[in-house]
Nucleic acid binder design. Sequence first.
DNA 1: CTCTTGCTAGAACGCTTGTTCTAGTGCTAT
DNA 2: ATAGCACTAGAACAAGCGTTCTAGCAAGAG
Lengths: 194, 194
Amino acid sequence: MMASRKRGAARDRILAAADELFYYDGIAATGIDAVVDRANVALGSMYNHFESKDALVVAYLQRRDQQWRATWESTIADCVTPYERILAIYDALERWVSERGAEQGCAHVAALVQLPPNHPGVSVAYRHKAYIRDRLTELVRDGGYSRPGEIAGDLTVLYEGLLANMLVTQQPSAVAGARRMAAARLAGRAASAV
Amino acid sequence: MMASRKRGAARDRILAAADELFYYDGIAATGIDAVVDRANVALGSMYNHFESKDALVVAYLQRRDQQWRATWESTIADCVTPYERILAIYDALERWVSERGAEQGCAHVAALVQLPPNHPGVSVAYRHKAYIRDRLTELVRDGGYSRPGEIAGDLTVLYEGLLANMLVTQQPSAVAGARRMAAARLAGRAASAV
DNA sequence: CTCTTGCTAGAACGCTTGTTCTAGTGCTAT
DNA sequence: ATAGCACTAGAACAAGCGTTCTAGCAAGAG
């Protein structure tokens, strides 16, 4: 027993293949066979590691969630002022896009669109979005702003808008503009009535 | 000849059924049978009016495009100042949501996520998005603002963000906040560097 | 060496889907 | 009344899907 052989090497290849195919070709559109072929893995191996395609989809979404949290938190950690930490989400997105690309927008939004409501991946996607909003609210509150929930809501709209815009325009050019609008929102100019 | 019988009554029912099912359950997830059942129409009738499911999808997207343009333009027409006409897109969205709901976000964004790149519906979706951006640029230019393309790009991000946010939160609560950010953007506060 | 274990290759299944086809029905216009 | 046409009901087919199963291979542990 113990750690025998390269346990899980196939599992990693499967997850990497699923990530690319699910993200770029769509979850429903990619069959198990395509994942297995791309991962250079036998079909039986796939079902050894994942109970079903649904389970693979859940693992795919959880992996994306973890990866995004990691780059976001790492970007936050590089900031010195609370103000910068709030805007770090847009810098993290820019970094993410430059490293991995986001031509298909947000994978979790795509999951909400593609999956039936009772699919186990849907709750993963909702939790991902809830985390973003909650963490953002926390950062805004730490910055000493009043009504942190409202501000975080507005910043979330800008964040979601960027991701959707990338899917539509196939380029990340709007990040700078959104960051400026977020900064203006924090400056309180947009907080007063009309 | 001439207008014989209720020509196209079945066609309308098919399109109405497809609209609801494609939008709420997803395009790939809804089969032709489901559309036919909901429209109370025979399968053969469906293939009399539409060459294939792909053709039905195209018609569905074009119909949504036309409907959105109509409510947007009607909202624009009710405005008196160029400034109001620019922000009218958010008012139109609010009206659209209150009348029809948008729990699934933008149907054309959903199409980009769900359809393969060579699907004829994809170009319909791209054209829909290009129209929004172009019309918005036009409205901004008519308002006498400098760099109308950049401003329209930022307003588009806010618009896309609202739609994506509705899919995630299942409520249209963020419209007011986005409209205020758009107004602030037009006020030029966010246009200056940093 | 031998046994276990994770892997491979591929056939086979049951199910769903898009599409076509065949008959039969009822309204409309002439 | 009658011919034409859009419609209905449903069977049938091919293709693709997720899933299971069988059989064999290779490498580390005893």
